[in-house]
Design a protein around this nucleic acid. Sequence first.
RNA 1: GUGGGGAUAGCUCAGUUGGUUAGAGCGCCAGAUUGUGGCUCUGGAGGUCGCGGGUUCGACUCCCGUUCUUCACCCCA
Length: 423
Amino acid sequence: MLIKSLTGTKDIFGDEVNEWIKIEKTIRDLCKDFGFSEIRTPMFEFTSLFQRGVGETTDIVQKEMYSFIDKGENHITLKPESTAPAVRAYLEHNMHAKIQPVKMYYISPAFRYEKPQAGRYRQFHQFGVEMFGSSSAVADAEVIALGDMLLKRLGLKKVELHINSLGGPECRKQYNENLAKFLENKKEHLCELCNNRRLKNPLRVLDCKNEKCQKVLTDVPTTLTSLGEECKKHFEEVQALLTAMNINFIVDGSIVRGLDYYTKTVFEFISNEIGSQGTICGGGRYDKLVEEIGGNPTPAVGFGAGIERLLLTMEAENGPMYIDNSKDIFIGYRGEEAMIEAVKLTNELRQAGLKAETDPLGRSVKAQMKYANKLEVRYSAIIGESELETKALSLKNMATGEPSILPFSDVATFLKDDTNANL
RNA sequence: GUGGGGAUAGCUCAGUUGGUUAGAGCGCCAGAUUGUGGCUCUGGAGGUCGCGGGUUCGACUCCCGUUCUUCACCCCA
């Protein structure tokens, strides 16, 4: 019986892996431009890190973590997200003593035991950034701008930026009271689920997609109505900075985020092109998290973006990504002696930095030419008796069919000049 | 965790009210006078019809279970 891969996981290869390489390069270049440096944290951590960091009551911790006990009886969990590990690393390596703010990014797998569907996997990949040490709106704006620029560089035009402010702890408390009061008056009109949420965590009611509830919510007070002076000013500054940078946004009181640690600014980049899992990037400010994990009070802001969802959106908006698989040259052969010469020449060309191929299957000349055609080489050549004698190749231009004769020793230079001419 | 659709060749899919050697297109390999690709033509390889059980003389087809997949709820990336 063939052993297959686990549900919710997938192999990435062929053209698809080239898409990944392309998007990863875009991300790394972007982060360099914004002054964020990469951090690679381990794939697993002590379970307690996520219990504290992500929050004991969240779905992620309660039912979605891949947890196990290792041979040393450590309670271990495959990372379900990368913000908590980033905070852990920040504290463990005393990064508060480095130049402030500390700006880091990661591209990492994450693991959640959920039922897979479009844009949702059990092993998925996140690109995220975290900025520690600044409470200024400039930090919020910079992080959002980074996300916005990523989408632009990936050619995405139909993604909307929704922003909101949850306020600090005092505003949150005030708002929860206001909201609870508002919802109590409307309780006959709310669905059963929402009436549960109303008592446990009224914020979650805002997320409900039930039509009836949405009707009730049309005139719900948003978190914005409960913001104190300082939080209000902060949010206005964020908006002014986004406007100054020409970044379009929608102030959306329904963006509340699932995780409890967010404070003040929260945001999501949402696409309507990829089904129900439309949030391709989400984040915000989390000024209390570093303390929660045991550090000194440190303001921070960041986001996580789903690579799979980015790719889905790119495909939905712009079709399949163009991947250049072309190669410089194929060198075939006829006969034992010629085979050695072809292998030798191919290797020399590769050493010179050219994309050269030969035939590893010992096929007929005709089959070798077919192979060369499928490899998308720009030139092909066959080495046989006459070439061995003259030490010269007949290079065939695969697009035009034109041959050019030149000595073995000149092939590399010829191909390099040709490449430059095509740029 | 809840609910709907699906599973037949490497890929996309046909397969008639259950009937004998399960098909097509694409892809792969080979050939069309033997040292040159693309187009065309010909041939070939490749399937325990997801897996297990049941009904039946007989199951790819009907029933049950199971796994995987897909879409949605939930939650999030």
